[in-house]
């Protein structure tokens, strides 16, 4: 049953077995085509496994479904250095902390340090207490001179 498959996906995720999680998500999709949770699990599992090409393929396979995968797609574009395309995908999206974090990294790679710092300023309202964030802000300040 689909419930058992999702239980299996959950266990694989907990174990960090992301390729396995993606495979089981695919089984769900065979039984329940277009299942949104399964689509999301498959895409995220490939991203977590650093299989960006496979994540892209899963996103493309779901293109006709009414599921917004644009953040995942933007992240995959960023990983493949398609930075303008990544920015386009983020444009107009709600400024969640995830969107702002990705945006700041894209701006950094593009050398747009003012925009990068402005993303970090907007991130402050989320009160993220993260050493990674502090390190990235320092990197941007150093790069900005």
């Amino acid at each position: 049953a689909v419930e058992d498959l999702f239980t299996s996906i959950h266990r694989h995720i907990e174990a960090g077995a992301f390729e396995q999680a993606a495979k089981v998500a695919d089984q769900v999709l065979k039984a329940a085509p277009g299942d949104e949770d399964a689509v999301r699990c498959k895409v995220v599992a490939y991203i977590k496994a650093d299989e960006i090409d496979k994540a892209f393929a899963a996103i493309r396979a779901a293109e006709r479904l009414p599921i917004d995968l644009s953040y995942y797609k933007a992240y995959c574009c960023y990983r493949q250095n398609k930075l303008q395309e990544a920015l386009e995908l983020l444009r107009g999206q709600e400024e969640t902390s995830a969107v702002l974090q990705l945006e700041s990294q894209i701006f950094y790679r593009l050398g747009r340090m003012n925009d990068c710092m402005s993303s970090y300023e907007k991130l402050q309202k989320f009160k993220i207490d993260s050493m990674d964030l502090k390190i990235n802000i320092i990197a941007a300040l150093v790069a900005a001179g």
Binding site: I47, A98, A139, V142
Partner: peptide, 21 residues
């Protein structure tokens, strides 16, 4: 330029499967 940590990777999240299991 210093290396920037990939915070966005951690921000990519699985959906909650609570109600699906």
């Amino acid at each position: 330029n210093p290396i920037v940590l990939d915070m966005a990777y951690n921000a990519v999240e699985f959906p909650s499967l609570e109600n699906r299991m």
